[in-house]
């Protein structure tokens, strides 16, 4: 333990830059995933069967194949086809973005579908254009319902970042392994790594809770700062817990949002609710 601590203090600089890389991978992947989630999610709601078909195919493909395989394919196989992605980190960000973007698309689609029919009709009655309807009426409401499942996906993405160490990126996991070979303190090295990940997950959850509070306050159903410090569980299927259960999430959320969430997520899940 003593040697572990002294080594730890010596490697502090390396660990710092490894942390930056892990965070970069997470944030980069999340931004790409968010963009793809909206693009694919809105496409999946299109009136045109071709657009829907394209979106569904992409969504099902990236949800149906393992993230691990996708990353390895991008890193090892794609160069054979003549495309070499300039850095391994970019490779990882693209893999994260595509995989979690596909899951996120189902969240977007489900949340928009869960906005009550009456809201659409109200917007039509006000003679809004389809774009205005979506931007001014539907999305602000759907957005609130998207945040909890997005948080699940974000934590899931964070937990996938150790994959980066398998494609030569010097992320936290890579650094922990360095620490391990330097000290021979295997258990401590990995425990340290797990604790760092736990803290990162907690910080992300706090941020997402704050975001949710803001979004809710805009809709006039603010819960204030009260819900911010709760720990929201990570969920690899990209659904809220209990998938579509009436009672699901009631412990986590006030009733209104929970209903919305569970409805949203009931339609989601690997593969989503079909065309």
């Amino acid at each position: 333990m003593g040697s572990f601590l002294s080594q730890l203090s010596q490697s502090w600089g390396n660990i710092g830059s490894a942390l930056v890389i892990t965070v970069e991978g997470t944030i980069g992947g999340a931004i790409l995933a968010l963009v793809l989630a909206f693009v694919l999610g809105l496409m999946a709601l299109s009136r045109f069967v071709v657009v829907r078909g394209v979106a569904r195919t992409i969504i099902e493909f990236f949800r149906g194949t393992s993230l691990y395989v996708q990353l390895f394919w991008l890193y090892f196989a794609l160069p054979v086809l003549g495309f070499k992605i300039s850095s391994a980190l970019l490779c990882a960000i693209i893999a994260f973005g595509l995989n979690f973007g596909a899951y996120g698309a189902e969240v977007v689609r489900g949340a928009i579908n869960a906005v009550p029919r009456a809201q659409w009709e109200g917007a039509i009655a006000l003679n809004m254009s389809p774009f205005q309807r979506m931007r001014l009426v539907i999305l602000p409401q759907a957005w609130v319902a998207m945040i909890p499942p997005f948080n699940n996906l974000l934590i899931q993405l964070l937990k996938s970042t150790p994959l980066m160490s398998l494609v030569t990126i010097a992320d936290l996991t890579f650094e922990a392994q360095q620490l391990r070979s330097a000290t021979g303190q295997t258990a401590w090295s990995y425990l340290f790594l797990l604790v760092v990940y736990f803290i990162l997950a907690y910080i992300l959850t706090l941020l997402m809770n704050a975001l949710e509070s803001v979004a809710k306050a805009r809709l006039g159903r603010g819960t204030g700062l009260r819900g911010i410090f709760r720990m929201r569980p990570a969920d690899p299927t990209g659904k809220s817990l209990g998938a579509g259960l009436a009672g699901a999430g009631t412990e986590i959320e006030p009733v209104e949002a929970a209903n919305l969430t569970s409805k949203t997520m009931g339609a989601g899940g690997p593969g989503g609710g079909g065309v």
């Binding site: 934590i155 937990k159 996938s160 150790p162 922990a176 790594l193 797990l194 990940y197 997950a201 990570a234």
Partner: peptide, 8 residues
């Protein structure tokens, strides 16, 4: 559930 299965 908050930590990576790979590290576990």
């Amino acid at each position: 559930r908050s930590t990576p299965v790979m590290v576990q």
